[in-house]
């Protein structure tokens, strides 16, 4: 059993491949998370302009990309764009798909955070002469982010997990590399190793999230 699923020799042989996968997963996350956060913030800021001409297209945009399965979106970009004369490669497709998909999710979280800040906060700021943008930057956003920190973290966790979708378009991230190693060694051990790495990488985030959620609950009491 252990020989099959946790074979030390195979681990040693596959390690360089799996490690390069891990590095790519980290790199992908470091690109995709800030990109999604940025897109989400942009959407939420646009949504705070309560003009119908901005609001409706925005709502349609967010709904569309939240309803669209990210895997389908990714494959569509990867397989479809070349027909439009645009050859982007797996990495760029993942970045764009995630920007669209997770940006919509982050956007909804930021929007809820902004809505959670009482109107009196902005009024106090504006009454001292702050512009709308200044009041947003210095008064609303810091409170908004603090209020939705658990949701932001929870979504980030999902995003990191979703980077494994990159394997479908041959981005050599952790899962893809583990499967390469598996097919080279005819042994499932690399997949087990990848699973353990995912867990070790995300478990601290999960703990942190629990603590934040508990603190938020305690704060509400």
């Amino acid at each position: 059993m252990i020989q099959t699923f946790f074979n030390i020799e195979i681990i040693a042989a596959a390690w360089p491949i799996v490690l390069s996968g891990l590095l790519n997963t980290v790199l992908l996350s470091l690109i995709v998370v800030p990109l999604g956060l940025f897109g989400g913030l942009l959407l939420a800021l646009l949504a705070s302009i309560r003009h119908p001409l901005v609001r409706w297209p925005l709502m349609a945009w967010v709904d569309f990309f939240r309803a669209f399965p990210p895997l389908v979106l990714l494959i569509l970009l990867f397989a479809g764009l070349p027909f439009a004369g645009l050859e982007l490669g797996g990495f760029a497709c993942v970045a764009i798909a995630f920007f669209l998909n997770t940006g919509a999710y982050y956007g909804e979280i930021f929007r809820a955070g902004i809505d959670s800040v009482p109107a009196g906060q902005v009024e106090a700021g504006r009454s001292t002469g702050l512009s709308r943008l200044q009041a947003m930057t210095w008064i609303v956003l810091p409170q908004a982010v603090r209020n939705v920190l658990p949701d932001l973290l929870s979504n980030t966790l999902e995003v990191v997990k979703l980077t494994s979708l990159g394997s479908v378009v041959a981005v050599p991230e952790l899962l893809y590399q583990a499967r390469q190693a598996q097919s080279l060694t005819y042994n499932p051990t690399p997949i087990v190793v990848a699973a353990i790495i995912y867990f070790l990488m995300l478990w601290p985030l999960v703990r942190l999230l629990s603590r934040l959620e508990n603190r938020a609950l305690a704060g509400r009491r």
């Binding site: 700021g125 001292t128 002469g129 702050l130 200044q134 210095w138 008064i139």
Partner: peptide, 8 residues
């Protein structure tokens, strides 16, 4: 000090 810095 917020408005002193950002506005004034």
């Amino acid at each position: 000090t917020l408005a002193l810095r950002k506005v004034a």
